[in-house]
Design a protein around this nucleic acid. Structure first.
Lengths: 335, 335
DNA sequence: TTGTACGCGTTATCAC
DNA sequence: GTGATAACGCGTACAA
């Protein structure tokens, strides 16, 4: 591997000059610059990232912490992040926190040790305080998928209240009045915003909504959603529609319903959330709330890179995205 | 951040000694070693990866190239790799090749520039020659999911011929004789092994198998599988069962069948391949061939780390895994 | 067993 | 505008 010295010699300049043209700072004459550039080309020179990191005390790569590699939601997030990272020739180092706040903190610490100064998080499990404690002048945290009030400017998020409302309203429009909802776990006591949207929509429509129609799943998996749905069924409070907080959970719920002998959408209608790739291939195809997950991942990456390199205008990156109802086959019109 | 100098001073030794205990090489007295260890603890010292990489000319991390972040298969692979990387405190840098041989080569080159000396690949699109050209004494390539004859010892793979046979035989046992098969694209002209298994099983059972019942999908996605199935249907060669080369493709096929007014499994039976997380939550639950994907990812990581650090016994890591039939609801017994 | 001193490839601060 | 040169933090001959 050629070094900066090799390039300098070949171009007949000093290493300092080479460094200047590589980093496009400092003032280099057009002529000299050209000589250096062609020398770089000829030798196929790439700066050594270790030497660079040592001198700059900065990794030029993105640290990313996701929750579960096998969950398609995070797959879409990574797709988006990788796409823009690639155009900037940045490596991305990924760690999984497995939905555990403790592991999340560990992963951040690990990435920090690896000299990453910008980390993209995908959490909603940490508190503002915990996050605040992590970030300092040497560590910029970007979060995707949830708005933290202490990090307003560094969160890429969706209006989940609107999303929950959208789903619920659609069900109401279709003539449903007994609408159950299965949510993922609470964040340190607070109701997730999707569920808030559900409650708000019911109130606005002046529909009585009983606590018996609301349940929280133990985690984000299909199995827990299935169990939660069984519990819902056991309560014997009748409902004609079910709003699940994620598509994955909707799949679990669907299975529980089916096992109970119920047909979708004839007996029970279902609305999911996220619009993962498989949603349209389920049977029946899942009506759901679409998040532009990949775009949001890209936005997070843009923001991260703006902090890392400063060559992207922060004002231009969109932080807040809007949910969108995607109508398919899992809801029956009762009117 | 404390440096090796700080530790050395606090422990009253030289930096060389500290380095020795950090890397567990060289001979250090128990007493001295203890002093150093506690100094490290007290200062919360972690070696700077850049300085280390610069001196060692080696990244201590794993480079990984997958094909598609949003495909749960690769999610499971990453889950496995990350799990063991974490126990060794190794970062993993992931790039996606998007099923493109060209991008795969690019990704390898990129990772090489980043000084990764061990890269885990998940490809079957490259030729032996191309792979050979990439790897040299400075770059160790591990492949997962496909056996390359030029890299026998560095591939983690499943017996896919057996898998294809398993699927087909099960269908035959259930009384099916007209069995269609939808495969993913060929690897530079060679029939994928899963498909080979299908052909072999049919031959062995002395079932006439027409080319009209075999089709190759344009890619690995659901949509292409759907289109391939439509094409299959158009041929008007009747079949009662369909074997799809992946679960994802089975989902696409299912949708096409359904759109044609066919019921699963009453009219057509389906067998998939992989056993991704969602397979058991589909309706009907998908009968499939299980690959221990996560375990295979872990094996690949073990192998990679053995090359990186030499502290794992290479002989002990299992290279060849066995497929397993998982019976659920998508196959009808015709007997 | 332990310490000294240099090199790894780059950036940045000076001079010129 | 350009060139020396001193860091940056660590590993490792070599010496003691």
């Amino acid at each position: 591997m050629p070094t900066i010295d090799d390039v300098a010699k070949l171009a007949g300049v000093s290493t300092a000059t080479v460094s200047r043209v590589v980093n496009k700072n400092g003032n280099v004459t057009g002529k000299t610059g050209q000589r250096v550039l062609s020398a770089m080309q000829e030798l196929n020179y790439y700066p050594n990232k270790f030497a660079r990191g040592l001198a700059a005390k900065q990794a030029d790569g993105l640290g990313v912490v996701i929750q579960d590699f096998a969950d398609p939601y995070f797959g879409m997030v990574l797709r988006g992040i990788e796409k823009v990272a690639k155009t900037h020739n940045l490596q991305i180092t990924v760690a999984s926190a497995n939905r555990s706040a403790k592991d999340e903190l560990k992963a951040i610490e690990f990435l920090r040790q690896q000299s990453y100064n910008v980390i993209i998080l995908t959490t909603s499990l940490l508190s503002d305080e915990e996050l605040l404690k992590c970030s300092d002048q040497n560590l910029k945290l970007i979060n995707m998928g949830h708005l933290y009030s202490a990090f307003q400017n560094d969160c890429i998020y969706l209006d989940d209240i609107e999303g929950g409302t959208l789903a619920t309203n659609y069900l109401i429009e279709q003539g449903h009045s007994k609408i159950a909802h299965i949510s993922f776990p609470m964040f340190y006591g607070a109701l997730p915003e999707r569920s808030l949207g559900y409650h708000l929509a019911l109130e606005k429509a002046k529909l009585s909504h009983s606590d018996e129609l609301f349940i929280q799943s133990a985690d984000f998996g299909q199995l827990s959603a299935l169990q939660a749905t069984q519990e819902l069924l056991k309560r014997a409070k009748p409902f004609t529609a079910l709003f699940a907080s994620t598509d994955i959970m909707a799949m679990g719920a669907h299975k529980a319903l089916r096992q109970a002998g119920l047909k979708i959408p004839d007996d029970i209608s279902i609305v999911g959330y996220d619009d993962i790739d498989t949603a349209s291939f389920l049977y029946p195809a899942l009506t759901t709330i679409r998040q532009p997950i990949q775009e949001m991942g890209m936005a997070a990456a843009h923001l991260a890179i703006s902090y890392l390199k400063g060559q992207i205008d922060q004002e231009e990156v969109v932080r807040k995205f809007s949910p969108q109802l995607v109508i398919r086959e899992s809801v029956k019109n009762l009117n």
